Simulated assay, not measured.
Amino acid sequence: MKTLVVGAGRLGTQIAQVLAAAHNDVTLVDIDDDRVAGLEGRLPVRLLAGDACEPAFLEHAGILTADLVIATTGADEDNLVISLLAKRRFAVPRVAARVNEVENTWLFDENWGVDTAVPAATPLISLIEEATGATDTVALLRLSKAGVDVIETAITPQSRAAGRTLADIVLPAGTVVATVVREGQPTVPTPGMRLRPGDELLLVSHAATEREIHAAFQ
Rank of each mutant, 00 (worst) to 15 (best):
T165P: 12
A167M: 10
I151P: 14
D25P: 09
R164M: 13
L28F: 10
P44T: 03
R10H: 11
A131Q: 05
V181T: 13
A91T: 06
Q158M: 08
T116E: 14
Q218A: 10
V18I: 15
P197F: 00
E77D: 06
P172C: 08
V138H: 10
A134S: 15
F108D: 05
R46Y: 04
D168A: 14
V5M: 03
T132A: 04
T190I: 11
P191E: 01
Q17F: 14
A66M: 01
T72H: 01
R211V: 14
G184F: 11
E200P: 09
D30K: 05
A120E: 12
A91E: 08
T190P: 09
R89V: 15
V92I: 01
D67L: 03
V148N: 01
I70E: 00
A173E: 15
D78L: 01
R46D: 05
G41N: 06
H60C: 08
S144H: 07
G113V: 04
H214L: 08
T105N: 01
D168R: 09
D168C: 06
D199K: 02
L85V: 04
L39N: 09
Q17T: 14
I31G: 15
I151K: 03
E200I: 15
E103F: 09
V69S: 02
T27Q: 06
E152D: 13
G38E: 06
L202M: 12
T65A: 10
E212Q: 15
D199S: 08
M193I: 09
V204R: 00
T105C: 00
A162W: 04
T137M: 05
V95K: 00
R42D: 14
T116K: 08
W112R: 01
A161K: 08
L124I: 15
T135C: 06
E152P: 14
T13Q: 14
K87Q: 00
T122A: 06
V18A: 12
F217P: 14
A146T: 14
G74K: 02
H214F: 12
L80N: 00
L141M: 11
E212H: 05
L84C: 07
M193E: 07
M193P: 14
L166F: 12
V204C: 04
T179I: 13
I128H: 02
R211E: 15
A117D: 04
G198N: 06
L107D: 03
S159C: 13
T122N: 02
A162L: 08
G184R: 07
L203S: 07
A22M: 04
T122M: 05
E210G: 15
G41F: 03
E101K: 08
I15R: 01
A162Y: 05
E129M: 14
A97H: 01
T156Y: 12
V26M: 08
D51I: 02
L4S: 04
E40H: 11
L203F: 09
